[in-house]
Design a protein around this nucleic acid. Sequence first.
DNA 1: TTAATAATTTAGATTATTCTAAAAGTTTAA
DNA 2: TTAAACTTTTAGAATAATCTAAATTATTAA
Lengths: 237, 237
Amino acid sequence: MKKTNRQSTLQLSTSQEDYLKEIFLLSERGEPVTTLALAQKIGVKSASVTDMIKKLMELGLVQRKPYQAIYLTEAGNRVALEILRHHRLLETFLAEKLGYRLDEVHGEAEQLEHVISEQFEKAIARMLGHPRRDPHGDPIPTFNLVMPTDTTERTLYSLKKGDRAQITRIMLQDRQSLKHFKTLNLLPGTIITVLDKFEDCMQLSILGQEQKPIKIPLSISEEIMIVPSSLISGKTQ
Amino acid sequence: MKKTNRQSTLQLSTSQEDYLKEIFLLSERGEPVTTLALAQKIGVKSASVTDMIKKLMELGLVQRKPYQAIYLTEAGNRVALEILRHHRLLETFLAEKLGYRLDEVHGEAEQLEHVISEQFEKAIARMLGHPRRDPHGDPIPTFNLVMPTDTTERTLYSLKKGDRAQITRIMLQDRQSLKHFKTLNLLPGTIITVLDKFEDCMQLSILGQEQKPIKIPLSISEEIMIVPSSLISGKTQ
DNA sequence: TTAATAATTTAGATTATTCTAAAAGTTTAA
DNA sequence: TTAAACTTTTAGAATAATCTAAATTATTAA
């Protein structure tokens, strides 16, 4: 069991931390946290999940009754937020300081998140000016493990023809999509206007490059978060 | 088996990489590479070393006959140099960019060295200006895995009364000594003069703080590398 | 409501790394 | 040169994380 490098008293393995993180992320998205869902996210078989959940329950990090939904205890939640903070700070560091592309940050952060010390976390947080979001626009849990929320944020899907907004977050995960969005220039910070909205897609123009409008399937517009233009406060970070 | 993140074809575990690194370091210092020596360095029992050496032999990274000295093959040597390059680049990065103290860099680098990708290695090497030495003054293997050598370097011990020299390398490992040397200001780059040399110790003055001479046991003076003042070329890095 | 389908768990194995205790081999010093 | 001391290996076991295949439980749809 490879041990990791976390502050709190109990030493967890990389694998255990991954399970806790994925339970958190599934819950956060409102998706059911099942044995199968976890197995698919983590890339193991269901039987392995059953075993690991049993272990995490013994450690007081997870709760469930057999065949019932899985959820984190308060302690489990703290660990998940800690790992997520590592992950998102690392992504920010890789993008801003080491010149990684948006589609490259996730994989490397995935490895490093279990290994860095508190000292490393603090040092990069400081170096980056205590960012509130990572390069995807995902919120970074604070040093005291609170997940920041932005009540003004909504989906691109929610906009109507003529609306103007700033992109705050790209919730797509796969590298291909991220590369594509990069080339389109549809990234956190970008300001867009809805030129038209149809049954299956919407047409956008990007501030500063109005000459080439962009078409986005509605399904994807739900994976892009924005703040309406009237509410833009100046700073996205 | 926790897998690491290295360029070459074969995927080694953190543990395997540690064995290869320690074999390299023992050989390099001219110390005998025995089962017991490795066990002590790595912090496992001899029986575990026997097993692991068997595995590394099967992988073609190590050679020996039972009860005989252990040494690296060409392939094993490459892996060791790769890990050592990671380690020393990371130490440099932690010290220069994240404000770590000299005695803090080793532990963190020890964890990270097995996890960072080629891309990460290249990025920090670039950011640091392709340093030739880490904060201890230890040489950093080049990107093509050649260990730089400095033929002008010798031990502090070798100096005579009245000699002047620049410290290039502190070969002590324990955190306590490193802290102590930091407070004495005896660090790579420091220029010293030998005020006197006795049977058991030598007395030094440090350029810029001649008012307080420093006494060093001879045993320790063998762990400090210097270049004589006449040979100082200007750049230590 | 019950049969088919799907999800979950159990049982039994496998792989990697480590351990302890005992056996085997090597070195050393009288 | 041989007995004591030390090093190394072997044998057997433990732990962690995973797997497959079979059994169990839950859900769904007729």
